[in-house]
Amino acid sequence: MTNDPVVEATDAVPDGPGPTPADDAARHDHALLRVESVSKVYGSGHTEVTAVAGATLSVDQGEFVALLGPSGSGKTTLISIIGGLLQASSGTVHLGDVDVTALSSRELTRFRAERVGFVFQSANLVPFLTARENLLYVTSLVKGGSRTQAKARADQLLEELGLADRAGNLPEQLSGGERQRVAIGRALMNDPDLVLVDEPTAALDTALGRQVVEMLRREIKSRGKTGIMVTHDLRMVEYTDRVFEILDGSLTHVEEPSALGH
């Protein structure tokens, strides 16, 4: 099994020399994304689980950062809250001047459509839409915008992602890596401010995984997007600008990828 080493990599998350995210956040007070003391408690009574505890972090416009931590450490929970998919138990999330934690569920739906691009671990695409239609569909979720422009944009994204000749294929006719690249295109389609990616390489082998993450970085950087990628694979962090480490729901350090010495 080629993806077994992933587990080892997780256990080997080193303690780098970086500051705590809270200290770091203080130095980024004009950051696009500001997460302050976010906690998430699932359940109640003795089934209570604190998935995220007092997370504070800031990410600047144009940065591509990693959220690194072992399984069950709260990574998915934290980016779900940041992307408006999940209600925090306490704390606030600001994207620009929008307080995400104060939005109603109807507003959150719009927020997700207009300002966030998601790439999930799997089941990313609508199975009965072609690659191109998967991209075009999300433009129908936001008001305005011309169809011709949307089509041009979809074709351009597919081209950049090396999928020009697969545009008319259904997801079932694509390989795992191609599917994840379509999902990246879909995430970028509505020109979101924030791109959130949850373990995009979990279903891929290492070489394909690298290829996908590399492409993700290129797209995010060339468009000036802000990106957060959840991973427990240490080898993927080299494509990011900074790495937030999370353990048992708490953010512990912010590191330079190079400091993690892969």
């Binding site: 998919l85 109807r106 739906t109 997700r112 998601f118 990313n124 609508v126 999300v138 979720l141």
Partner: peptide, 16 residues
Amino acid sequence: MRTFTLLRAIGSSTGR
């Protein structure tokens, strides 16, 4: 259900 869940996550409303 998986597809509908994905669509809700990427910003489709229930009404849609």
